Measured scan of single mutants.
Amino acid sequence: MVYKIRDKETGKVYEVTIDEETNEITVYDVKTGKPVKTVNMTIEELKEAGYEVEPV
């Protein structure tokens, strides 16, 4: 599923895909559409880390 996340401190917005089964999150560069990095976190962990998470 695709989400937009926003860093509450910097205001930067990222587009991510989240595999609900493995909790693998792939972060994409919004301008190029290319993957930047992959992390292993849940949506709740993202929120605790200071991100706003919205489904696209």
Rank of each mutant, 00 (worst) to 15 (best):
T10L: 02
V16Q: 00
V36A: 04
K37P: 04
T26V: 10
T22H: 12
T22W: 06
N23H: 09
K12V: 12
T10C: 07
Y14E: 00
D29M: 02
V13E: 12
V16F: 07
K12A: 13
E24Y: 13
V30D: 14
K12L: 13
T42E: 01
Y51K: 01
Y3C: 12
T22G: 06
D29W: 04
E21K: 13
N40Y: 15
D19R: 06
E20G: 10
V39R: 03
T32V: 02
T17H: 13
I5V: 11
E15F: 15
E21T: 12
Y14P: 00
V53P: 04
D19V: 06
V27N: 01
K4I: 15
T10V: 00
K8Q: 06
E45C: 07
L46E: 00
Y28W: 13
K4F: 14
K47C: 09
P35Q: 08
Y14H: 02
E24L: 15
K31L: 15
E48F: 08
E45W: 06
T38M: 09
Y3V: 08
V53C: 06
I5E: 00
V2F: 14
Y14S: 01
I25L: 10
L46A: 02
V30P: 15
E15C: 15
P35H: 10
I18C: 05
E54M: 12
V2K: 15
P35Y: 13
E21N: 13
V30Y: 11
V30E: 14
Y51H: 03
I18W: 15
E44Q: 11
K12Q: 14
T22S: 12
V30N: 09
N40V: 13
V30K: 08
T32G: 03
K4D: 01
Y14K: 00
E52A: 06
E20A: 13
T17C: 09
K8E: 02
E24V: 14
M41E: 01
T22E: 05
T38C: 13
N40F: 15
V39P: 04
I5Y: 05
G33R: 07
E24R: 12
Y3T: 09
K47A: 10
E21Q: 11
T42C: 03
I43A: 03
T22Q: 08
Y3Q: 07
D29K: 01
E20F: 14
K47D: 04
D7A: 03
E24F: 12
N40D: 05
Y28L: 10
I25D: 00
I25P: 00
V27C: 15
V2P: 09
K47R: 12
P55I: 11
M1S: 08
V16K: 00
P55A: 12
E24C: 13
E9Y: 12
